[in-house]
């Protein structure tokens, strides 16, 4: 897998190569070159199968990481192609023309992370959520616990005691 990267290194700025295990390697590619690079891997290097497209929210770095997991069914090897994009007005080029299912992944990413893929069919249609008005829920700054506490109510008859505090209260309240 390193061999492929070494060969393509001249054409594409590929960074952070890591052979994660026997058949999986991680690489990072610039946003502008990513679709071109993935197309190349698909058309020339036999990475025909797209397993997933997903995103990781690096809130503290103000970046989204898009991960394209592509697999070569002949050599059985896979790449995670990582693309870092800005978190503000997050946008990425669509790859729906390469794989049919990509549009579904991109639609979900739009809904769950708020990452736009202009031109991807149905990208603006809600996928899983319905009538959602909060920020995209898979973003790190969406607090699920807070949301559920505001939306639902606790069951009656539940009380909470922390052993150490309870013991202090019982055994040495004044100290």
């Amino acid at each position: 897998m390193k061999e492929i990267i070494d060969r393509l290194q001249e054409l594409y700025p590929i960074g952070d190569f890591k052979q994660q295990n026997k058949s999986l390697a991680l690489i990072t590619v610039d946003k502008d070159k990513a679709v071109d690079f993935i197309t190349r891997l698909k058309n020339e290097e036999g990475f025909l199968h797209l397993s997933i497209i997903t995103a990781v929210d690096w809130l503290e770095k103000n970046k989204f990481q898009l991960s394209y997991l592509i697999n070569n069914p002949t050599t059985k090897n896979s790449f995670v192609v990582r693309v870092m994009i800005d978190r503000e007005n997050a946008e990425m080029f669509s790859i729906h023309h390469l794989w049919e299912q990509a549009a579904t992944y991109q639609r979900e990413l739009k809904e769950m992370f708020g990452i736009d893929f202009p031109g991807s069919p149905g990208v603006d249609k809600p996928f899983i959520l319905e009538g959602w008005h909060e920020i995209p829920p898979y973003r790190r700054d969406f607090d699920t616990k807070n949301y559920s506490e505001e939306t639902y109510f606790p069951r009656e008859g539940r009380t909470k005691n922390v052993p150490a505090e309870y013991m202090k209260q019982k055994l040495y309240p004044d100290e």
Binding site: S51, I52, V56, S67, V80
Partner: peptide, 18 residues
Amino acid sequence: ETYSKAECTRGEYGYYMV
């Protein structure tokens, strides 16, 4: 990060973990 996969009855089942 890694991707762990297995063959389930419907095909490739995988967990991408970061």
